[in-house]
Amino acid sequence: MLRISNIDDINSGLDALVALDPRLEAVRAIAGEVPLRLTEPGFASLASIIVSQQVSTASAKAIFGRFSTLVDPLTPQGLLAAGEGVFREAGLSRPKQKTLLAVARAAADGLDLDDLCRLDAREAMATMVAISGIGPWTAEVYLLFAAGHPDIFPARDVALQSAVGHALGIDPRPGEKALIRLAESWAPWRGVASRLFWAYYRETRGRDAAPPAGNPA
C-alpha cells in the first residue's frame, strides 16, 4: 500500500487531486507550500494529538511542551510511573488524562503503535477507537501523520470544514457528513487533500490550524 513518506508524494497527490477536481487548482495556488507533516509513530506522537484536541495550536504546543518535560522519556511506562500530579502541572483536562492513561495501559498490555501503522486503515481505525477516549478524529490524525496513510480525511475537523466551505463557496460550511460525501471524489488522495486544505486555511486565516503530531516534518 502506498504511504505518504516524502514531499514528492505530496506533490504527486496534489497533481492527481487537480486532475480529479479542477476546482482544487485555485486552492493549491492560494495554499502555497503544503507540508509533509510526517512524524515518528509511537506513544509520544499519539499523546501530542490527544493533547491538541479542542484547543488552539499555540495552547496545544505549550501544554505538550510542559507534559513532555515532566514525563521524560514520554513512554507508556514513563507515564504510568509518573503519577497523576504531572497532569495537573501540565494543565491537562480530566478527559485527556483518562485517555492518555488508557493508551499507556493498552500499550503496556501489548498494543504496538508502530505496528498499527502498517495495518490497513480500516483495521487500524477499529483498533484505535476501541481504546477508551480515542475517537475517530484522533485515530485519523495519527494515521495521517504517523503512518502516512494517503486516503484519510478527518471530516470532523472544524478547520477543514471551514477551509473547504470557504474555498469552494459552500455556505454554510459543510458539516461532517456532507464533507465525507464531498471528499469521496478526492480518493485515493484524501490524505493529501486534508493537508492542502489545512495549508489553505493557514494562508487565508493567518494561522495554522493543522493538529500537531510530535515534531512534524
Rank of each mutant, 00 (worst) to 15 (best):
M1F: 13
I4N: 02
S5Q: 13
N6F: 07
N6T: 06
N6D: 15
N6K: 12
D8S: 12
D8Y: 09
D9R: 10
S12A: 14
D15C: 03
A16K: 06
L17H: 06
L20C: 00
L20K: 03
P22L: 03
R23T: 11
R23D: 13
R23S: 11
L24M: 10
E25F: 10
R28K: 13
A29W: 12
A29V: 11
I30V: 14
I30P: 05
G32Q: 09
V34R: 12
P35E: 09
T39Y: 04
F43H: 10
A44Q: 12
A44I: 10
S48Y: 10
S48C: 09
I50D: 06
I50Y: 09
Q53N: 02
Q53G: 05
S56A: 14
S56C: 09
S59P: 01
A60D: 00
A60C: 07
A62W: 05
I63S: 04
G65Q: 08
R66F: 00
P73I: 07
P73D: 04
P76R: 05
P76E: 01
A81D: 14
A82G: 08
G85E: 09
G85Y: 12
R88P: 07
G91L: 04
S93R: 03
R94Q: 14
Q97E: 14
L100G: 02
L100D: 00
V103P: 00
V103C: 00
A106W: 15
A108Q: 13
D109N: 15
D109M: 14
L111V: 15
L113E: 02
R118L: 12
R122K: 14
A124I: 06
A124V: 05
T127V: 15
T127K: 13
M128Y: 01
A130G: 12
I131W: 09
G135V: 03
T138I: 08
T138R: 08
A139D: 02
E140S: 14
V141W: 00
L143C: 09
A147K: 04
A147S: 10
P150W: 11
D151N: 12
I152G: 05
P154K: 12
P154Q: 11
D157L: 11
A159Y: 06
A159C: 11
L160N: 04
L160M: 04
A163Q: 06
A163I: 12
H166I: 01
L168N: 03
G169A: 06
I170W: 09
D171K: 08
D171Y: 08
P172Y: 08
P172N: 06
P172C: 08
R173N: 14
R173C: 12
P174F: 04
E176P: 00
K177V: 12
S185C: 11
W186D: 01
W186Q: 05
W186K: 01
W189H: 10
W189I: 04
G191H: 01
V192S: 05
S194T: 13
L196N: 01
W198M: 02
A199T: 02
R202P: 00
R202I: 01
E203Y: 13
E203K: 11
E203A: 15
R205V: 02
R207V: 04
R207I: 03
D208K: 05
D208A: 05
D208C: 07
A209Q: 03
P212F: 06
A213R: 06
A217I: 10
A217R: 14
A217L: 13
